[in-house]
Amino acid sequence: MSESKKIIKNKVAFLDRKIPRYASVLGITVLLLLWETICRMNLVPPLFLPAPTAILSDGWDLMASGELMNHITASLTRIVGGYAIGATVGIIIGLILGFSRWADAIFTPVVYSIYPIPKIALLPLIILWLGIGEMPKVAIIALGVFFPVLINTFSGVKSVDQTLIKAAVTFGSSHFNVIRKVILPGALPTIFAGLKLAAGTALLLLVSAEMIAAQYGIGAMVLHYGNLMITTKLMFGVMILSLLGLLFNRGLHWLENKLIPWK
């Protein structure tokens, strides 16, 4: 008997294989090293691709002179302001459209006809309305954030379990409390999906608007050094943008875990 023994092995062990923690930094480190070596060996001219160390040292100069701070402050004010306005209005209108059938029937066609417009195309019009200055940039970001947040909030509201609404009404909730205590928390996971989506849009619109018409701001800085062909400082601006995007995403992720502990 014993020589014909066949042990049955777990054939799906690869599904829960443990990966060491250093793996996540491995890719980036190798890429940076490779990049640095290529530049040091003068395989490409530094004008096209400066070495990471050169970028960092020129970036340090930018920081030391205080120039960078001006750009970052300008950009942050615009994006935070625009994002906050767009997200708040988007969530409120989304809740109303989702809850009221009348509002839904009347306004949803309006929303869907404006939604597909690439928002940056509206910048000249908005500048005409609001003048040059901070307002049109904040407005364009708010507009770009508003739509994805609104549409996600709307579909989040629609996906709230009907029995939960029935339960709330049975136990004495008013319409306002149904929205506040059932529909809003029920739609929150979907709302966050919209907020994350909108973060990318906001960054895109920020940079575009700053490239079109701005004195300060990361977008303006990148364009400026591009025109001067100072690639190191240009690349440093791009790196700051990447960092900003990452920070934005992490922040939203943190907020999501904070606000949705029941998931």
């Binding site: 379990d161 136990f171 029941w262």
Partner: peptide, 20 residues
Amino acid sequence: EIALFPWRTVFENVIYGLEE
């Protein structure tokens, strides 16, 4: 379907009607 509010704890669910 039981229909407990997933974002409320057991206690918060139980007292929902009283709260309202």
